[in-house]
Nucleic acid binder design. Structure first.
Lengths: 112, 112
DNA sequence: GTATCAACTAACCTTTAGGTTGGCAACCTA
DNA sequence: TAGGTTGCCAACCTAAAGGTTAGTTGATAC
């Protein structure tokens, strides 16, 4: 009793998967940051200089969020002044090519 | 004179492409709506019933936005009560498979 | 003559995303 | 001892996204 119809369950499931996907890629800077980390791990200050348009706060916030999602990993070195490196996780590297292909959508829809 | 360095130009360009891409796929319901239109054009009321969680206002707003982006096309039939059908444009159909593959990201990152 | 239908529109509100500013820690150098 | 270095945090603000509710249209069925 109280069983949901199957279609409802399926719909909810695919919405959960979709939400997780969107969590990772949506956001003004998220994909951009991921692409910058694609070739190698970078220091925080390095990223700041690579993406000067993003504010400090938002950059840190996005790196934190991406780390919490398991897309990015953070390595802190106990030095002074501090050194911190951000890089893609194995999962992150796995989906990177798909994300890079995504931009072809923008190209297609920008064409007249 | 006043020429920007090449790296800056490249960066700005890829940000424009990225933004266009995100315009199309970002939003709580956008991909979900696109997927529902993937197999065939649908009437507005049909979509409402297929995605009962989205509010009327937001559904119409998203359909309008997707139409303005060239992802969706709207056909109005001059009947009473009105009949309106929404379907993917050729460009929309072209990128649909890539968008569908995207969800594998959500699946990967939901795995424990 | 009023109730119904589908596809909206308008007015309003709440939540989230993103941005600005200023400050702190802990060591090094001048 | 003052100032520079790097990576962060907190407080505050604005704009955008998303949600709720009510009303409009105009032929048709009751």
């Amino acid at each position: 009793m109280n069983e949901q119809p199957r279609t409802q369950i399926v719909a909810n499931n695919s919405q959960v998967v979709l939400k997780k996907t969107l969590d990772i890629i949506c956001g003004k800077w998220r994909l951009y940051i991921i692409f910058q980390l694609g070739t190698q791990a970078r220091r925080y200050g390095e990223l700041r200089r690579m993406i000067p348009e993003v504010s400090e706060k938002v950059l840190i916030q996005e790196l934190k969020a991406l780390a919490a999602l398991g897309m990015v990993e953070k390595k802190s070195f106990p030095e002074v002044p501090p050194r911190v490196e951000y890089g893609l996780t194995p999962k992150g590297l796995e989906v990177l090519p798909m994300l890079q292909k995504l931009t072809s959508i923008g190209e297609l829809f920008l064409k007249p």
